[in-house]
Amino acid sequence: MTPATPAPVLLDAVPVQQEQRDKSRARRPRLYVLDALRLIAALSVVAFHWTGVNLHPEVWGQKPKALMPTVNGITAYGWMGVQLFFLISGFVICMSCWGRSPKDYFISRVVRLYPGYWFGVIATALVVNFAATVRASRKPLSFSELLANLTMLQKPLWVPDADGVYWTLWVELRFYLLFAVVAVMGLTYRRVLVFCGIWTMLAVITPYTQIGLMDLLFMPNDAPYFIAGVAMYLIYRFGVNPMLIAVVAFSWLISQNRLHATLGAYRHEVGYNLSWNVAAVITAVFFLVMLAAATGLLNGIQWKRLTVAGALTYPVYLLHQEIGWALIRWGRDHGLAPYPLLALCLAAILTLAWLVHRFVERPGSAWLKRMLESGRFSLPKTDPPVLSR
């Protein structure tokens, strides 16, 4: 008798036929809900910096906790929009580079990040250096620091960020570097799943090693969000199976533990203790909403104008902190009441973000993509001829 074929292990839970249908399954409805979630995350961070931070009372003339206590109690958790960003990033990066060459992956990240970022650095530096001082603790950027910020590598260069919110870009860059390892080998279900498992274990053990390089590479506080986002994209592409649900569940379990360290870091900016219970519930909601999107439960959201919301997210994020604080200080000095002032500042930042997207990001990305695809920046297949002397 022919022996029965053994059941596949969970790592191979996606059938071969499903891998073969990869290209056809890639043509899924656009997830407009991700554009909405991006903007929600960005506005959450905006609310935190404008009304949740009590560290810089000179912005409003007093601490927001005293000026608007109810709003401050809510927006003190607005920093958690960053965690939602990381979840979305894990999903989107996996989606955007699936089936693409390493060169295409590199180009897509460069043209997406740098044109708007360069504008944001320069505009923020002009405000910080030449507008009326908003914060006594904020020092003007030197020309050398400005140039270093243009690389997006100011953190490892020990140069202050042009805008404090740019610290997250260094986290994103490290995620891109880690994911490039599996992207170079070629993305498959098995390889990406193994990547998630290995990164999870390395991120968990990193705090115990007390090795700075491991902390730098494996990002124990932020890794669970990226890993869960990647696993959710596998769910979106290949369907639900126990292994992927386990990866997402373990990522949330780890993230709630790492929240203790994150809450401690934000206590300095807020000025009082934040509730772990509230933060854990918010994180769980983020995971559940993203899981609903991955499983198709939110495919009914098909409002095409949400793509505009998604497009505004990055410039809003880049421009809102130092420039927003300067706008608040200006409005306060001119006698505007807090809530009308907030509405005016938000309208100004959204308008500026649209202008940056329309006249900086779109043409800048197109030009940069043409340059990178022209072959001028490709590695030569052979050594160039030696110059005669």
Rank of each mutant, 00 (worst) to 15 (best):
G120Y: 09
W118Y: 13
D104C: 04
R100W: 01
D104V: 04
P102D: 13
W98F: 08
Y105V: 03
I107F: 03
D104H: 05
V121C: 11
D104K: 06
Y105E: 06
F106N: 01
S96W: 08
V111L: 03
R100K: 15
D104S: 14
S101G: 10
F119K: 01
G116S: 12
V111R: 13
M95C: 09
K103N: 05
K103C: 02
C97A: 15
Y117I: 01
G99I: 10
L113P: 14
G99S: 11
D104Y: 01
Y114L: 12
S101E: 07
G120D: 12
G99P: 02
P102F: 10
G116N: 06
K103T: 04
G99N: 09
Y114F: 13
P102I: 12
L113I: 15
R112N: 11
I107P: 01
T124P: 00
Y114P: 00
S96I: 14
W118T: 12
K103L: 12
G116C: 09
D104I: 04
L113T: 09
V111W: 02
R112H: 14
R109N: 06
F106L: 09
P102W: 07
C97R: 15
F106W: 11
F106V: 04
R112A: 10
C97H: 14
R109M: 00
S101N: 07
R109V: 03
A123R: 02
P102L: 12
I107S: 00
V110T: 11
S96H: 10
F119N: 00
S101I: 05
L113M: 13
V110E: 00
P115I: 10
L113H: 05
P102R: 10
I122D: 08
W98Y: 14
G99M: 09
P102A: 14
R100A: 05
F119R: 00
T124W: 01
Y105N: 06
Y117D: 06
K103E: 07
G99Q: 10
S96E: 08
F106E: 00
M95Y: 11
P115D: 09
I107T: 07
L113F: 06
P115V: 11
F119E: 05
V111P: 07
G120N: 10
W98D: 15
T124I: 02
S101L: 02
R109Y: 05
C97M: 15
M95G: 10
S108H: 13
G116I: 09
R100L: 06
I107Y: 03
G99Y: 10
R109D: 08
T124R: 05
V110G: 04
F106S: 03
I122P: 01
K103D: 03
G99H: 08
S96N: 14
Y105D: 02
I122K: 05
R109W: 01
C97F: 14
I107A: 03
S108I: 00
Y117M: 03
R100I: 04
G116W: 08
V111M: 01
I122S: 08
R109L: 00
V110I: 15
V121Y: 02
Y114W: 13
R100E: 11
R109Q: 07
A123D: 01
F119W: 03
S108N: 15
F106C: 02
M95V: 09
